[in-house]
Computed example of a mutant assay.
Amino acid sequence: MHCKELVKGKKWVCVADGPSHPVTGKRRQVSRSAKGKGEAIKKVEQAVKELESAIVYHKDITVREYSREWYQQYLRRGRKETTNGIREEDATTLNGFMGSLEIKAVTPKGYQNFLNYLFDKGYALNTIKRIHSTGRMIFKKALEDKAIDADPTTNVFIPRKKITVEEIENDTVKDMYLEVEELKLFLVEVDKYVNFVYVALIYLLTFSGMRPGEAAALHKKDVLFESSQVRITKTLQYGKKGENKIIPPKTMTAVRTVDLDKKIMSMLQQLIDYKKEVGYPESEFLFAMSDGHPPTVPLIRNVVKRIAKRAGIKKMMNSYILRHTHISLLAEAGADLPHIMQRVGHKNESTTTEVYLHTTKGVRDSLTSKMSDRFGDLMSSKRNGE
């Protein structure tokens, strides 16, 4: 930094190099004046600091480049793993259509074409709405960051077809979990999967109701073999593989100990033995891979999708559908809602309640049969001569 007294005892000016221009790369100097030298130095240092912290985007930044940066900031909001995963998938869909375009070149017409493309490809209305919501967040933030001059997502519309009676009557809750026959098909393909770490992980998710992040964060000491239980006290914060953080759950409701079937416990012991046999490095994580780290939630989701595709499952698969499937299995087994909530670590959750109240075909048939056996005589109308 260079300082010079311009007016003796009255005015000083100081000059220092600031960060180079983000677009041209040229050198930038910062100059500030004050009555005293010390004050002038402080002003220059503050100005340089502000320039260094400011984000100025180069003029040809693409939608893909900006959306990646937006997503990294979005992760810091502390959303649920499923929400983060959904936003990532939505951004990927957006990038598949316009990722290579300069973000400033995206027009309202171009963005409308993107929504029309989703419609023409047969995306469900709610899915288009969700992807559009993510797109709006990305471009709104880009406008705030001055990466674009105008938001192309304003004044567009979501295309939709005329709703039919069949669609009104369509039951969407059943798409949130696997019916028993679907689960059988899925598990047949799971058993064929090469990496046994994922096999054991998927079985645990299905028959414990754990969240994917909770399972990935498990340490070997959390598996209580003597009592056939697993202790859940933490979750894996989403991030790049090897850069994940183990954090406490959001609420104390999620801290719990879950009873497991002895077959699942046996599989977890088999997992520990398997990793020793194949030479995996020692790790405190139960589901550590060959690099000593557990798989990320997106990796788990991708494996579940691939296996479901091989099994011919038509439902939109993700790692959370296994959690919902467990809820449906508990309901079919006769567990009450409070017990289910406690087991899966929920205090209030609409999805759990929806799946529980919907129940499965087995429960409905069983209840109908029991009602008929016990109260059939009440259903007989005397007017019909019965």
Rank of each mutant, 00 (worst) to 15 (best):
I103G: 02
K104T: 13
T233E: 13
L201E: 10
Q269D: 11
F97V: 03
D373Y: 13
F119I: 09
P22I: 05
V344P: 00
V194T: 15
T24E: 06
A91P: 06
L299R: 12
K240W: 11
L51R: 06
E167S: 07
M176E: 10
T153D: 08
A200L: 03
K234R: 03
R383Y: 15
H326A: 02
V63N: 04
A34P: 10
V199S: 10
L183M: 12
F157N: 14
F139P: 06
M137W: 14
K121E: 15
T164W: 10
A335S: 08
T164K: 05
G110F: 03
I41C: 07
D60H: 07
G334V: 05
Y57K: 07
H324W: 01
R136D: 08
F97A: 00
H21G: 05
N116C: 03
I55N: 05
D60E: 08
V255M: 06
P159L: 15
V278S: 02
D261C: 04
K275W: 03
Q72L: 14
R306T: 14
K4D: 15
Q269Y: 10
K4R: 01
R130V: 15
S31R: 12
P249Q: 05
V156E: 06
E39T: 14
E102S: 08
Q269C: 03
E89R: 07
M1F: 14
R130E: 12
E284Y: 08
G376C: 01
H326W: 00
S380L: 14
E102L: 06
K104N: 05
L115F: 05
F139T: 11
V23Q: 08
Y238R: 12
D273A: 13
V156P: 02
M176R: 10
R323S: 05
L286T: 02
N244V: 13
T368F: 13
R79G: 14
T257M: 04
S350T: 11
G9H: 08
V156H: 01
T164H: 05
A16P: 11
D222Y: 03
T325E: 05
I327A: 09
G345E: 12
D191L: 07
F225V: 03
K162I: 12
L378F: 15
L201I: 08
R231S: 00
N302D: 15
V180D: 14
V258K: 02
K314W: 02
K10S: 11
Y57R: 07
E277H: 06
R256C: 10
S208N: 04
Q73K: 13
R136N: 11
K382T: 13
S328D: 13
N113F: 09
G135E: 01
E182K: 02
L337K: 07
G9W: 07
V165F: 08
K221E: 00
L125E: 13
E81A: 09
G25F: 04
L178V: 09
I163Q: 10
I313M: 08
T257H: 07
A150Y: 11
I168K: 11
V199H: 04
G242E: 11
S366Y: 03
Q73D: 15
I138V: 14
D259A: 09
K161C: 03
V190P: 06
E282M: 13
